[in-house]
Computed example of a mutant assay.
Amino acid sequence: MIKTIKENVYSVGVEDWNRRIFDELIQIPEGTSYNSYLVKGKDKIALIDTVDPAKTEELLENLRTLEVNIDYVIANHAEQDHSGSLPKILEHYPDAVVVTNTKCKELLTEFLLISEDKFMTVKDGDVLDLGEKTLKFIITPWVHWPDTMVSYLKQDKILFSCDFFGSHVATSHTFANDRDIYKPAKRYYAEIMMPFRTIIKNNLKKIGTEEIDIIAPSHGPIYKNSKFIMDAYADWTADDSKNEVIIPYISMHGSTERMVNYLVDVLIKKGVNVKPLNLTYTDMGEVALELVDATTMIIASPTVLTGPHPSVVYATYLANALRPKLKYVSVIGSYGWGGRMLEQIEGMIKNLKVETIEPLIIKGFPKEEDYKKLDEIAEQIFQKHSELGII
């Protein structure tokens, strides 16, 4: 569907209503979109990014409807959900030139075998004059690949932000509703952007020097309220965490669940916000989402063949890979005859710059002395959150 953003600026991308997993890794319960944009200048026409190769024909149909010739294809990022239709676009518009940065050019020649003579390479701050429409290119590496850049349309104050500020949502709405988009955008940040939090903070400052009215990302609806999403990113990337404890857990025979439930109740009574996440029912995107603001994570697991439950292994690996701004971590759980569950979990969180709260691994069901130790863990968490000034 073609959507008008401003005069001679169109969204020509495609909604993918049925997709439920991305990169064979990330669950996307609301589908997604592959946003491509067309800018018609007085002299030249530019297509900004393409779409996933599964949706190439729909993109081509949108372009045929507009009855345009394409002079430039701006490649903000080489990943195939953005660039996958590029070979077909160049086949249909043989005179078009691919405009991108040196790193993205390198990747596109490797991924899509595009001939080097089809490229125009740009540097940070370079501009492309389309005739009464001028695109400025801002290199924003590691948001979330090393090749990423964004394109800024000066006259209309539109930032074509690539994966920056995206959300995996398929929708008939052109523009985002701030309330509805907050959680999908935060989940997108958590799953994709959080490992690059420090770099993203610097890139926020970089694009913040431009006057931006509209942000048009590569996935999800467009932001007319650019301040809303930029402020959200500033909050998510800040070093300060919130008065939140996340407890990803599994319980096979009820022992670990009893420990979790008891600890949750004690923390709530102390004024600590806590979110238990039963990994039997919780997808890893929700775990990532809750990690964005959490100060403390309690990993809770039974022992399975001497180690942690596989679902807990996955959640622990995810937390280690995403590198959230956690300050404290502990482990609780149970075993039947023995094992190395605690040792294995501790070995999986080396990326986390955290203080460890004394763990509690018990044999069988929790007993009175175990509940007392859980009280001690809860008190430690309360005291540490209080020292940070977040309670």
Results as ranks from 00 to 15, higher is better:
7 E>L: 00
7 E>H: 01
8 N>F: 00
9 V>R: 00
11 S>W: 14
12 V>P: 00
13 G>F: 10
15 E>S: 11
15 E>T: 09
16 D>L: 15
17 W>F: 14
18 N>C: 05
19 R>V: 12
20 R>F: 10
22 F>P: 02
23 D>T: 12
25 L>W: 07
25 L>K: 14
28 I>V: 15
29 P>M: 08
32 T>N: 11
32 T>D: 10
33 S>A: 11
34 Y>R: 00
34 Y>Q: 01
36 S>W: 07
37 Y>P: 00
37 Y>D: 03
37 Y>K: 02
39 V>Q: 08
39 V>N: 05
40 K>Y: 04
41 G>Y: 12
41 G>A: 12
44 K>M: 09
46 A>L: 12
47 L>I: 13
48 I>F: 12
49 D>L: 07
50 T>E: 04
51 V>H: 11
52 D>N: 15
53 P>D: 11
55 K>I: 01
56 T>L: 11
56 T>D: 08
56 T>C: 11
57 E>H: 11
60 L>A: 09
60 L>F: 05
60 L>Q: 05
60 L>V: 14
62 N>A: 05
62 N>E: 04
64 R>H: 12
69 N>Q: 12
70 I>Y: 08
71 D>Y: 10
72 Y>N: 08
72 Y>W: 06
72 Y>T: 07
72 Y>I: 04
73 V>N: 01
74 I>H: 01
74 I>N: 01
74 I>Q: 03
75 A>D: 02
78 A>L: 00
80 Q>L: 13
80 Q>G: 01
80 Q>A: 01
80 Q>H: 03
80 Q>K: 09
81 D>T: 15
82 H>W: 10
83 S>Y: 03
83 S>L: 08
84 G>W: 00
85 S>R: 02
86 L>W: 06
86 L>Y: 06
87 P>Y: 06
89 I>K: 00
89 I>S: 05
92 H>E: 14
92 H>G: 00
